[in-house]
Design a protein around this nucleic acid. Structure first.
Lengths: 194, 194
DNA sequence: CGCGACGTTGATTTGCCTCAACGATTGTGG
DNA sequence: CCACAATCGTTGAGGCAAATCAACGTCGCG
C-alpha cells in the first residue's frame, strides 16, 4: 500500500523507520470513483493527495463557464489546490477523478504537525513545489510562444501516458484551445503526414 | 543593510541570533547597474537574489526572437532562475536590472549548506515557492481566460508600484501581447472613459 | 433501443499580430 | 549645450490563428 509513496519519499530524503512510520500514520487511504470530485469550487482545500492509481484532473472555470484544465494527475503525482490548502481559503478550482482512483491523502493539520516533527519533509514538499513551478512556467511560455499544433506534439511527447487515457477535449483545454480547433489541428497533421 | 531581508525572514520563521548571523554570513551584497544582467541565457544560475532596492525583469526568448517577460522583481522579492538554479543546468532565461539595483545574493552551495545547518530555511523557501506558484497559476489562467484589456486593468490594480516604473512595452510582454496592441487597448479605454 | 458524451466539419467572426511610418522624449558624445 | 541617435509610444492597413455557432455522425452504455 505504501510501496509507491515510499519510493517517492526516498528519492528526496533518507529517513529513519520511526519517521517513516509516523508519516504513514497520518496518511489516509481513499478510493475515488470515476467522475466524482475530490474538491469542489468554494470548499476549503483541506486535503492534498498522492495518486497511487488512477487519473484526476484539476480545473477552473472562466467567466463564461468554460473549463480550463490546470493539471492532470496520474500515478506518482501529487494533486491539491495549493492556494486554498495553504491559505485555508475557499477554492477556485475543482479536482475530479477521470478514472476510478486510489489516493493517499494528507490533511492540512497533519502536514503541519509532520513538518514540526520531521522537518525533513519541508524539503520534500519544497522540491515538489519547485518541480511544479518549473513545469507550469514551461507551459506558460509555450502557450504564449508556440502555435497550438506544436504544443499538441509537445504534449504527446511529454505525456504519452496521459494522451491515450483521457478524452480529447480535456487535452484541448489543457493546451488552451477549443475541442473543435484541436480536432482541426489533428486533421491537418494527419493529412500532411501522408 | 539586512533590515529588509530580516523582516522577510521573520515573517516566516523565528530564529536564534546565531542562526540569523549564519544566514547573514552567506549573503553577498551586490549592486547592479541599470541595463546590466544578473543572469544570461546559457549560464548556470548559481545565484539567487533578494531585491533590497531597485527593479529587475526575468525574461525568455521565443523561437522568433521575441522577449517574454516572466517576472518583474522589485523591493522585497526574490529573483532567480529556479530551473537552472536547482538543476545546475544552463539557463534559458535572462535576468536584467531595469534600474540601478541593490541585491543580497545567495549561492547555490551556500543555500544547501544553510539548509543542512538551519533546516527551518527549507520552510521559508518552500513558502516562497508556494506563493510564486500561486501567482503564476493565476496569471496563466488569466492569460487563457481573459481578454487583454481586463488583464491590463488587473495588472494596474495588482501592481500599481510596477506600472508607473517600467516601460510600457515590458508590461505588454508581461501580459502576453504586443506593445502596439497594448497601446490600442489604452487608447480604447481612454476614449470609452470620456 | 435511445440517450448522452464525444469527435468532426463547415461557415463566419474576432482578437490580436505584423509591418510600416511617424512624433516625442531621453540620453550621450563632441 | 547642441546634434544626433536610441528608445519609446502611437496609429493605420492588412492578415492570420483560433473562437464561435451550428449541424451531424458515432460510439458506449444504462
Amino acid at each position: 500500500m505504501f510501496a509507491e509513496i515510499d519510493a517517492y519519499v526516498n528519492r528526496c530524503l533518507s529517513l529513519k523507520t520511526s519517521e517513516m512510520d509516523y508519516f504513514h500514520s497520518i496518511l489516509q487511504s481513499r478510493k475515488l470513483e470515476k467522475k466524482t470530485w475530490f474538491l469542489r469550487e468554494g470548499e476549503i482545500g483541506e486535503w492534498e493527495a498522492y495518486v497511487v492509481r488512477g487519473c484526476l484532473r484539476k480545473y477552473g472555470m472562466d467567466d463564461d463557464g468554460n473549463e480550463i484544465i490546470l493539471q492532470f494527475a496520474i500515478e506518482d503525482w501529487w494533486v491539491g489546490d495549493i492556494a486554498s490548502y495553504s491559505l485555508q481559503s475557499p477554492s477556485q478550482v475543482y479536482i475530479q477523478a477521470l478514472e476510478d482512483s486510489e489516493l493517499l491523502c494528507i490533511h492540512h493539520y497533519d502536514k503541519e504537525a509532520l513538518f514540526a516533527r520531521v522537518p525533513a519533509f519541508e524539503r520534500m514538499f519544497r522540491l515538489m513545489m519547485q518541480r511544479s513551478y518549473i513545469v507550469l512556467q514551461d507551459r506558460f511560455v509555450a502557450t504564449l510562444a508556440k502555435p497550438a499544433d506544436e504544443r499538441y506534439l509537445d504534449f504527446l511527447e511529454k505525456y504519452p501516458g496521459i494522451a491515450g487515457r483521457v478524452p480529447q477535449h480535456y487535452i484541448a483545454s489543457y493546451l488552451g484551445i477549443t475541442p473543435e480547433f484541436l480536432s482541426r489541428v489533428r486533421a491537418r497533421m494527419a493529412k500532411s503526414r501522408k
